[in-house]
């Protein structure tokens, strides 16, 4: 009974993409999903904090005063497209096309850098030109901590993808590098999911309320 179940496993594996081909890779991908679930809870706490503090502006600049549609939409579209190019890199991975995989990952990190640049510029404008610093009000503390945490994750993602690119250039697509490239893709899509909620709960809500 147990034996046949195990064999069924082995047979199923042969039809799955390369990143699942080793038991260890398979387990690590499941483990990474659990990590993402924990990240979800981390961002949940930050969203809860921000939403409660949103109206506590202490006489300082409010969400409506600060947020501008142009830069926010630029950041959103850049991150959405980078999530798309990251999805294309996973497709190239499944075709075992190392060059295509590397090319789409490079496009993804370039878009990631544009996003981080736009966000840094946004923070700079708020802090220096509008006097809206982290310590100005509870609203701004919540804002900078939530968006800063997301921005740090994106920056870390860029460094991580560069590391994966070096390994891919050196070793090509193996079960191990395939698993790593797939996992960094999951991480990148996850950051886009978080941004969708930042866009809605921070910017759109800020314009509405």
């Amino acid at each position: 009974m147990t034996d046949s179940v195990l064999r069924l496993h082995e047979r199923d594996k042969s039809s799955l993409p390369i990143e699942y081909s080793k038991e260890e890779g398979d387990l690590r991908i499941v483990g990474f999903w659990i990590f993402l679930a924990a990240e979800l809870v981390l961002f949940g706490t930050l969203f809860g904090t921000y939403l409660v503090l949103q109206s506590h502006t202490a006489g300082g600049p409010t969400a409506k005063d600060l947020f501008e549609i142009g830069p926010v939409m630029a950041e959103t579209i850049v991150l959405l497209v980078s999530s798309f190019t990251c999805g294309l890199s996973t497709i190239e991975l499944r075709r075992h096309n190392t060059k295509g995989l590397i090319a789409w990952l490079i496009v993804t990190i370039l878009l990631g850098l544009v996003f981080v640049g736009l966000e840094a510029n946004e923070f700079y404008t708020y802090a220096v030109h509008e006097g809206a610093t982290l310590s100005r009000s509870a609203f701004l503390s919540g804002f900078f901590v939530l968006l800063g945490t997301h921005g740090c994750h994106v920056s870390l993602g860029i460094v991580w993808i560069i590391g994966i690119l070096l390994q891919l250039a050196k070793r090509g697509i193996t079960p191990v590098t395939a698993r790593k490239a797939f996992m960094v893709g999951l991480y990148w899509h996850f950051l886009d999911v978080v941004w969708i909620f930042i866009f809605t709960a921070v910017y759109l809500t800020g314009w509405v309320i």
């Binding site: 979800l40 809870v41 809860g48």
Partner: peptide
Amino acid sequence: GIIFGIYVAFAVVAGT
């Protein structure tokens, strides 16, 4: 795992 993560995150935000 993901459903549990969504549930806890939702409970934290909505509960707060």
